[in-house]
Computed example of a mutant assay.
Amino acid sequence: MRFIKLLLLSGLVFGILIFLTSLLFPSKAIVERSGVIDAPLSVVYGQINDLKTWPSWNPWAAPDVAQKINYTGPATGKGAGYTWSGTQHDKPVTGTVMIRESNPAKGVYCDLTFSSMKPMTAAFELKPSADGKGTAIQWRLETELGLLPWWKLRGFLADKLTGPQLESGLTQLRTICEKK
């Protein structure tokens, strides 16, 4: 009986220590990648502002992830959105994308939800490149994690988990825009 009490007390102390340690981690996860696309700002903006072009470059809108997409609202710009569903690793996944703000001089800002994930915001910030011949782009994802240790740990790993997908998406976007 004494061993069980000691085991339970040790488990409780360990849980409290993990929670207190997690308070040292940031409550927001930010993953960002940037680059330069050798295409006019209007071409890059057109690809990002039109959600129907996303499956050709965005890794989370690709046909192998989002097998079914239903578009809502206007075709482009503020209020445009879609819901998607698919299967990953034999599990059903769903999500939504909604353009919250769209400005040709600044970029496109979206609200995202994915099943079993915290809501995210995405920002595609655009400006002319330093030489004036191309477009500088920064793709940023932000997630509010809250206080729970497992979400904070996931946020701590977000750059390693999500960063390569952002890089892949930017590379594909660059290829598409530079061909136009």
Rank of each mutant, 00 (worst) to 15 (best):
N70K: 14
W150S: 13
S129G: 04
G77F: 05
Q172T: 13
N58K: 04
E101P: 02
Q67M: 07
Q138T: 15
G81A: 08
G77C: 10
V97F: 10
T143H: 03
F14C: 08
K52M: 11
T175I: 14
A80P: 00
D90W: 04
H89R: 14
K152E: 10
I37M: 07
L7H: 02
P40D: 07
K78L: 13
A105I: 06
I30L: 08
I18Q: 02
T175E: 14
R100H: 13
Q165M: 11
K127P: 08
A66M: 00
T113Q: 11
W57M: 03
H89A: 15
W151L: 08
I4C: 00
L166D: 01
A80W: 04
K52W: 11
F25N: 02
P26V: 06
F124M: 05
V65K: 05
V108E: 00
P104Y: 06
R154D: 14
L9S: 08
A105M: 07
D131T: 10
K118I: 05
Q172Y: 11
A122P: 01
G15A: 14
P164H: 05
T121V: 05
I16N: 03
D159N: 03
M117K: 06
R140S: 15
G146T: 05
G35Q: 04
I30R: 09
T76R: 11
G107E: 05
M120R: 04
K68M: 12
E32Q: 15
L6R: 00
T96F: 07
P164R: 02
S56I: 10
R140N: 09
L161E: 05
S56M: 13
S85T: 11
V65E: 02
R2K: 10
M98Q: 13
E178K: 12
E101A: 14
A39G: 07
R174K: 15
R174H: 13
P104M: 07
T87P: 01
K5A: 00
T143F: 01
I69H: 00
K106R: 12
T162Y: 10
Q172P: 03
I137D: 09
V13A: 09
A66L: 01
G169A: 13
E178A: 14
R100G: 08
N58V: 03
K106Q: 11
E144L: 03
Q172A: 15
I137Q: 06
P119K: 08
S42Y: 12
P104S: 06
P40S: 09
L166W: 01
G95K: 01
W84H: 03
E32V: 07
K106C: 04
W150I: 12
S27I: 02
L148G: 11
E144W: 03
T162H: 04
Q138K: 14
K160F: 11
K68T: 11
A122H: 02
V13M: 05
G134M: 10
M117Q: 10
L148S: 12
K5C: 00
S115R: 00
P164L: 00
R174Y: 06
L51T: 14
V31N: 04
D50P: 01
K179T: 15
P92L: 07
R140F: 12
F25P: 05
P149N: 08
T135E: 04
G77D: 07
G79C: 06
P149A: 02
W150Q: 11
I48P: 00
L8A: 06
M120A: 12
I176H: 10
W150K: 10
T83L: 10
P63S: 06
